[in-house]
Amino acid sequence: MEASVSAAVNVSILAISVIFTVLIILIFTIKTLVKLMPYQASPAPLAKSGSTSSPQKQDDQVAAITAALAAHMGKRPDEFRIVNIQSR
């Protein structure tokens, strides 16, 4: 195919116009979609209670931690008392 600079300029102007046209159509399409289907935030999660564990589970955790600490400190389990477990 014969090619001249003026033909290339014409092709360039035509092509860039087509690109802008296609992309502008897409912009308006997206704007319409966003209007028709707006973002809805998912419902907020329920407020956390002080502890996530059930009383029975917490007792088990206290027992396990007490045993581990006693072994680590070289003391008997009744020599110290765990008073609070808090999740951070």
């Binding site: 195919m1 600079v5 092709v11 690109i19 912009i27």
Partner: peptide, 29 residues
């Protein structure tokens, strides 16, 4: 979505190169 226009504008590089390539003797394809 307006940033689509920036994606279109950057294609200017494609067409300046097309003109440059024709200037250097390449055919249109």
């Amino acid at each position: 979505p307006s940033t689509f226009l920036l994606g279109a504008a950057a294609q200017v590089g494609v067409y300046t190169t097309l003109i440059g390539a024709v200037f250097l003797g390449f055919n249109m394809q």
